[in-house]
Design a protein around this nucleic acid. Structure first.
Lengths: 236, 236
DNA sequence: ATATTACTTCGACATTTCACGAAGATCCGC
DNA sequence: GCGGATCTTCGTGAAATGTCGAAGTAATAT
């Protein structure tokens, strides 16, 4: 249950490079942080080594997002081939301990995703609320551990970067507790997915609770691992 | 004691845009997240509105880091002029509660900074260890609160993105506890700054402890606020 | 002392970006 | 259905990127 790390790390690297006064130096800093020689990076990128040097020396003052992205990805790919030594090192910074037990996966989309398509991808059926919506991300939460472990401030982390998202609660019994928790929270997701039960087993109070916050509720019996794999694979 | 938020938020935005398959859509997503019309953004950027549209529509497939940076900064600036409504909203995600009491400031440099220049900026004198080093960032920690509040996993956050950094401990009495804490940690900073005491008051054990981990120790009597202001203002 | 590895510099050229402004498409509110 | 605000599309030219390969520096190893 990981590898969200890779994405977050990539984002951090790309962000730092993009905002830097000299993207070249930032690029170099990261290459060196991963202990990768220019030559190897060039080879994996299938460009000549001088290209890398030109970037790092600042000959191109404002490289496009495309190459920055490619370079970041390649640096990460090289590290993975070597056993993810540095990615693991950086992972420590991205994820604090509890996350692994509580947040199974968290992701943001750069562009809106149709709720209908989202539901289809995770084999979910609609319980109540509108389906003509879009979301910007999702969070998969272990419901039990969340209640046991999260303090109120930590609870905010669940929302990631946008509240226009789907919250997927796993291993639900009736779905009442998660909906109550959301009722109490000032921030409302667009959609709640109850994982592990069918429409018939859902607590009768749910539609009423959902209605007040205008939240769409879905339920799915697809396994957690399958859901995550499916969502990760989707390219919308 | 804040405003690191702005930088982190900018980094997140820039990273997401840069890594996106269609930077244009990502750009649009953020502009809309901040509730800013194309026209206003264009005006503040002093470009024609069609420019924004061209980017968002994907006519430019790979915009340079320079404009991405400018756009991100302008979005943030507009929000600040309006009272930082959305920045505050996003701040919640970036900083968890304890940080404000423990980590006074944390920053990464894109390129290496000379330890000598760094020392000069914070009015620090060398106690032991080599000065011909470079660092990639710094962290200002409230020593007492750190010991009281941080769990071992949270302690890692102090290191930010690189251990090649300076750790500035504030309100030190003799400096022994911080050095002992570092001795026990598997990750070592390049440099430790003891704030609030002069060379004469430093605990005699310090040089020995520092030696083992090859850490340079400095001390300064400059005030915490002054240090932070000074480091933030520096443009190396 | 000569290979080898790691990196830099630079001229050249095709491809893109960047920015403009005019013209068109939508979606309001009235 | 008109005016207004918001956004899209597109032709155009100057500037910058993206890439190469040849030639050069520098440090390390044999």
């Amino acid at each position: 249950m990981k590898s969200g790390v890779r994405h977050q790390l990539a984002e951090k690297m790309a962000g730092e490079i993009t905002l830097s006064d000299s993207p070249g130096q930032a690029l170099k800093k990261w290459r060196l942080s991963f202990d990768i020689p220019q030559g190897l990076l060039a080879e994996r990128l299938e460009v000549s080594p001088s290209v890398i040097s030109d970037y790092e020396s600042g000959r191109r003052k404002s490289p496009g997002t495309a190459i920055v992205g490619k370079i970041v990805d390649t640096i990460l790919a090289i590290d993975e081939d070597r056993g993810s030594r540095f990615i693991k090192k950086f992972a420590r910074i991205l994820y604090s301990e509890f996350d692994e037990d509580v947040i199974y996966d968290i992701h943001e989309y750069a562009s809106p995703v149709d709720l209908l398509k989202f539901a289809e991808a995770i084999g979910a059926v609609s319980l109540c609320g509108p389906m003509d919506q879009t979301i910007y991300g999702y969070t998969v939460i272990n419901s039990l551990n969340a209640i046991l472990q999260l303090s109120s401030s930590e609870f905010n982390r669940i929302y990631g970067w946008s509240t226009e998202r789907a919250l997927i609660f796993t291993d639900i019994s009736t779905g009442k507790s998660p909906m109550v928790a959301i009722r109490v929270t000032p921030f409302k997701p667009r959609c709640v997915v109850l994982q592990g039960i069918g429409p018939a087993e859902v607590h009768p109070l749910i539609p009423g609770l959902a209605e007040r916050d205008r939240i769409t509720v879905l339920c799915t019996q697809m396994g957690v691992e399958t859901i995550i794999t499916s969502l990760r694979g989707e390219s919308w």
